[in-house]
Design a protein around this nucleic acid. Structure first.
Length: 658
RNA sequence: GCCGACGUAGCUCAAUCGGCAGAGCAACAGUCUUGUAAACUGUAGGUCAGGGGUUCGAUUCCCCUCGUCGGCUCCA
């Protein structure tokens, strides 16, 4: 028989024997469309790679997480090829897959224009249609250097091979044990069309890319450091099918419609007057109602939760922030000092130091711990101009900030009940899909305090997080300089995650402020401090709620809960009467007595996303009734006035969405 | 802060290759009195983001500043 050796592999749980030289594609009978790669013993492989003795082989479907990443990575290659064909002087950076898509960085003489992107995309479609083969080839470091002599960034990556730096996407290029280059070959002639240093794997041919679209371009620092030169990044998206891509693009459209900056202007909630400066919002009456209701409810819950309310000023002499360490660790994030009477005054970037002064204002007993101070505290931070973004990233904001002073023994229970409190309150505002992130220190020197304290605090947070039963995602190195934190990430109505509440344990500030309480044995002990912002900031949470509800707030939060619409002018007094009764029950109601047609009034109320419209004409008046129109266009006619008011009051009190 | 795009009426957008700035909606006034998403007519509204420059003349071309948008970096 043949001299070709036989190999034993495991496929779909069953052992099989195949001839040497069999590829993963052969073994899986993969079509290169629905199955685009293989997983052998856990490692992703090209379909064209040969199987090895003992391989346990699984297919990688194009629509799986791995499959999508491969498609996206391959699309990034196609894009880079197109870019270099159109702009031969373009040098390559890196081109990894990312969530929902991919990017590739290029060093080009001038940044890409939208028109450039169109040209690149057009060329990409030609390449995809041509069905170029992705062909893998191992190279030695020296050969790679010679082949890529014209690609300085790739040369730098070769130098990094095996090194640390895997957090910047570079490992996509050089992450493997050996360097490999992927050649893109013409399927008819076998001619080399393009090549790139790459770990792989890739789809078998460019035809295996079912759907893609270039999205946008922008500057990006080489290897993520602002000390490095800035390259030009092009972002694209790619999917396993046209349908999935359309769904994704539709989601983006939906997100755009919900943009709180847009809705904030449309619904007359808030604005950013240029005169005030960037990142400084003002809330209009309608936004003001929402804020007030949000805050009132929060205050009530905090009162029930055993918090004490405190108030502190917006500016302070610098000494306070020397004590706290902010002027040392955080000066770049603060507005510069104002010189007054020989002292330097600073706008406050955080409330905690002032709360510490309140704790310190007299001797404290263990009997009064845990002591929970709460404040809607306004803080000002000098955010760099390029990062300011609507209400989610501002320079002046109000934190719903609390600081809890407790003993070491109390810390664990306090954290558990705190997390519970936070989650319950967020649910009341209509968010109910959460996960947690545990941010811990790493080796960086930006973290202060003893390793032992960090360990204790981290472990206490971890326990609290675990007891919540929510998914816990580690975030090494993400902690504040003074202590570890849990952040609550909430998913909104269209599945986007927002970082909201943070809970941080701090051994450091009590130390710096020399905070003490007297213990039962008469000794003086240092309390532990827990920092906690629930909304994060009111502005940010406000923005999140606008997007979550797409501006259609549930009745309890809606700035106007009811609009009364007379069928004709003569019916207005009847609605004014009704409105008076409703206001007595605490309902925010307006009667639209303008000259507009009834249909126009409905349209206006609908556009302002009012939860309830109450219409009244001759028929209703004859019956002492009113007719509902709801946001979804449904109506219910002839409802007795008292019943209508009861129904609205009930919806408000139960904080339900309608 | 860095790279890029952009800034015209309250909003959404036209126009001017350097020669008196235009529409819809909103606002205001009047007419009309209507049963579930836009009645009709009229009026008013602009230092074309701000400042400087080039020019006989700048909203238009150039520079600076401010602001917005998309990225990067950052986000205690």
């Amino acid at each position: 028989m043949s001299a070709v050796p036989e190999l034993r592999i495991t496929l779909a749980g069953a052992e099989r024997v195949v001839a040497g030289g069999t590829t993963y594609g052969d073994a899986l009978e993969a079509d290169g469309r629905s199955v685009i790669a293989a997983r052998a013993n856990g490692e992703l492989k090209d379909l064209a790679a040969a199987v090895s003795e003992g391989d346990v082989i699984e297919p990688v479907p194009v629509g799986s997480a791995d499959g999508r990443a491969i498609v996206r990575h391959s699309t990034a290659h196609v894009m880079a090829q197109a870019v270099q064909e159109i702009f031969p002087e373009a040098r390559l950076g890196i081109g990894p897959p990312v969530e929902n898509g991919f990017y590739y960085d290029f060093d080009v003489k001038s940044p890409f224009t939208p028109d450039d992107l169109k040209r690149v995309e057009k060329r990409m479609r030609e390449i995809v249609k041509q069905g170029q083969l992705f062909s893998r080839r191992a190279v030695s470091d020296d050969d790679a250097r010679a082949e890529l002599a014209a690609e300085p960034y790739k040369l730098e990556l070769i130098g990094l091979k095996g090194g640390a730096g895997s957090d910047d996407g570079a490992d996509v290029e050089v992450g493997g044990a050996e360097l490999t280059i992927y050649d893109n070959l013409d399927p008819k002639t076998g001619e080399l069309c393009w090549k790139d240093l790459c770990r792989g794997p890739h789809v078998p041919t460019t035809r295996s890319i079912p759907a893609f679209k270039l999205m946008r371009s922008g500057g990006a620092y080489w290897r993520g450091s602002e000390k490095n030169p800035q390259l030009q990044r092009i972002y694209g998206t790619a999917w396993e099918s046209r349908e999935r891509q359309d769904e994704y693009l539709h989601l983006l459209e939906e997100a755009e419609k919900r943009d709180h900056r847009k809705l904030g202007a449309e619904l007359d909630l808030f604005s950013f007057p240029d005169e005030l400066g960037s990142g400084l919002p003002v809330f209009h009456p309608k936004g003001g109602v929402i804020r007030r209701v949000m805050e009132d409810y929060s205050r009530r819950r905090h009162e029930e939760g055993g918090y004490s309310f405190v108030n502190t000023p917006h500016i302070t002499k610098g000494h306070l922030y020397e004590t706290s360490g902010h002027l040392h660790w955080y000066k770049d994030g603060m507005f510069p000092a104002m010189e007054l009477e020989g002292a330097e005054y600073y706008l406050k970037p955080m409330n905690c130091p002032m709360h510490n002064l309140i704790f310190k204002s007299r001797g404290r007993s263990y009997r009064e711990l845990p002591q929970r101070f709460f404040e809607f505290g306004s803080v000002y931070r000098y955010e760099k101009s390029g990062v300011i973004h609507g209400l989610t990233r501002v320079r002046g904001m109000t934190q719903d900030d609390a600081h809890i002073y407790c003993t070491r023994e109390q810390m664990q229970d306090e954290l558990k009940s705190l997390l519970n409190f936070v989650l319950q309150l967020l649910k009341d505002y209509g968010l109910d899909d959460f996960y947690l992130e545990l941010s811990t220190r790493d080796d960086s020197d930006k973290f202060i305090g003893t390793a032992e304290n960090w360990e204790t605090a981290t472990e206490a947070l971890r326990q609290a997080a675990i007891s919540s039963g929510l998914e816990l995602v580690p975030d090494p190195g993400g902690a504040a300089f003074y202590g570890p934190k849990i952040s609550v990430q909430a998913k909104d109505a269209i599945g986007r995650s927002w970082q909201l509440s943070t809970i941080q344990v701090d051994f450091n500030l009590p130390e710096r402020f020399e905070l003490e309480y007297q213990a039962a044995d008469g000794s003086r002990q240092r309390p532990i401090m827990i920092h906690r912002a629930l909304f994060g900031s009111i502005e940010r949470f406000f923005g999140v709620l606008v997007e979550h509800y797409a501006g259609a707030f549930p009745p309890w939060l809606a700035p106007v809960q009811v609009v009364g619409i007379p069928i004709a002018e003569a019916h207005a007094p009847y609605l004014h009467d009704l409105a008076k009764k409703a206001r007595e029950r605490g309902i925010r109601i307006e009667v639209d007595a303008s000259d507009d047609r009834m249909q126009k009034k409905i349209r206006n109320a609908q556009k302002s996303k009012v939860p309830f419209m109450l219409l009244a004409g001759d028929e209703d008046i004859a019956n002492g009734a009113v007719s509902f129109r709801f946001r979804n266009g449904e109506q219910r006619n002839g409802v007795p006035i008292e019943d209508a008011i009861d129904e609205i009051v009930s919806a408000i009190e139960r904080r339900v969405q309608v």
